[in-house]
Lab assay of single mutants.
Amino acid sequence: QRITLKDYAMRFGQTKTAKDLGVYQSAINKAIHAGRKIFLTINADGSVYAEEVKDGEVKPFPS
Rank of each mutant, 00 (worst) to 15 (best):
M10A: 15
Y49P: 00
V48L: 08
S47N: 07
K59R: 13
G22T: 03
A27E: 15
I38W: 00
N29K: 12
Q25I: 15
T17W: 01
K54T: 13
E57R: 13
Q25P: 15
P62T: 04
S63R: 12
V23D: 02
Q14E: 15
G35T: 05
A34H: 11
E57H: 12
K37M: 12
D20H: 06
I38M: 01
L40K: 00
F39S: 04
G22E: 04
G46L: 08
V58A: 10
A27M: 14
G22H: 09
V53G: 04
R11V: 10
H33R: 13
D7M: 06
A9M: 12
K37G: 07
G46D: 05
Y8K: 00
S63D: 14
V23K: 02
D20T: 07
A50K: 01
N29Q: 14
Y8H: 03
K19Y: 10
G56P: 02
G56A: 07
Y24C: 15
V23E: 03
T15K: 13
V58P: 07
T41A: 06
L21Y: 00
S47I: 08
V58K: 09
P60D: 05
D20C: 05
H33T: 14
V48Y: 04
V23G: 03
A31D: 02
P62Y: 04
D7L: 05
I32F: 03
A27W: 11
Q25Y: 10
L40E: 00
A31M: 12
Q1N: 14
F39N: 04
D55P: 06
Y24S: 15
I38E: 00
A34N: 10
D45E: 06
F12D: 02
E52F: 03
A50T: 02
K37E: 10
I32Y: 02
V23L: 09
Y8I: 01
E52C: 04
F12W: 11
R2L: 10
D55L: 07
T4Q: 07
V48E: 00
Q14D: 12
Q14W: 11
G46Y: 05
G35Y: 05
Y49D: 07
Y24Q: 15
L21Q: 00
F61K: 02
K54Y: 12
T4I: 05
Y24N: 15
I3L: 12
F61I: 03
T17G: 01
G35V: 05
D55E: 09
R36G: 04
V58D: 04
N29I: 14
T15G: 11
Y49R: 11
D20L: 11
A9Y: 12
A44R: 04
H33I: 15
L21I: 07
R36D: 06
D7S: 05
R11Y: 10
G13Q: 01
Y24E: 15
L21H: 01
L21S: 02
D45L: 05
F61C: 06
E51A: 05
A9R: 06
K59N: 09
I38S: 00
K19L: 13
Q25R: 11
T4C: 07
Q14S: 13
K16P: 02
Y24H: 15
G22F: 05
K30Q: 14
G46N: 06
D55F: 08
R36I: 06
P60F: 06
I38K: 00
T17A: 12
T4A: 14
A44D: 13
L40I: 15
P62F: 04
I32P: 00
G22D: 07
I32K: 01
A44K: 10
A9H: 06
R2F: 08
R2M: 09
S63E: 12
I28G: 00
A31R: 01
M10C: 13
A50S: 04
H33E: 15
R11Q: 15
P62K: 03
K16S: 05
E51F: 09
A27N: 08
A50Y: 02
H33S: 13
G56Q: 07
L40W: 00
Q14K: 10
A9T: 11
V53Q: 09
D7Q: 07
P62E: 05
H33G: 11
I38D: 00
T4E: 09
K37I: 12
T15R: 12
K19P: 00
S47E: 08
R11D: 06
K6S: 10
D20K: 07
P60Y: 05
M10Y: 09
K59C: 10
Q14F: 13
F12E: 07
V53W: 14
M10N: 15
E52G: 01
G22Y: 04
N43W: 10
F39Y: 13
S26C: 15
T15P: 11
T4K: 08
G46P: 00
F39V: 07
S26L: 07
D20I: 09
P62R: 03
P62H: 04
G13F: 01
T15Y: 14
H33L: 14
G22W: 04
V53H: 11
V58L: 10
K19Q: 14
K37C: 11
A9K: 06
K19H: 13
R36S: 08
T41Y: 15
A9D: 03
N43S: 11
A50P: 02
T41K: 05
V48K: 03
A34M: 13
V48H: 03
P60I: 07
K16W: 02
R11A: 10
L5M: 04
K37S: 13
I32H: 01
T41S: 08
D20G: 04
T41P: 00
V53N: 08
N29V: 14
K6L: 13
V23Y: 05
D20Y: 04
G46T: 04
A31W: 12
S47Y: 06
A27L: 15
E57P: 03
E52V: 04
Q14L: 15
Y8F: 05
K16Y: 02
K37V: 11
V58R: 08
K19S: 11
T17H: 01
L5T: 01
K59W: 14
K54H: 12
A18N: 01
D55S: 08
A27V: 14
N29P: 07
Y8Q: 01
N29T: 14
I28C: 01
F61P: 03
Q25M: 09
E52A: 02
A27I: 15
F39P: 00
D55A: 09
K6E: 15
R36C: 07
S47P: 03
A18P: 01
F39K: 02
K37D: 09
V53F: 14
P62N: 04
E57F: 11
G35A: 10
F12N: 07
R11S: 09
G56M: 07
K6Q: 13
V53P: 02
K54G: 10
V58I: 14
A31I: 07
A34G: 09
E52T: 03
T15W: 12
G35N: 13
K54L: 15
A50Q: 01
A31P: 01
K54R: 12
L40Y: 00
K19N: 12
I3M: 14
K19T: 09
D55H: 10
I42A: 04
T15M: 14
G46C: 06
E57Y: 11
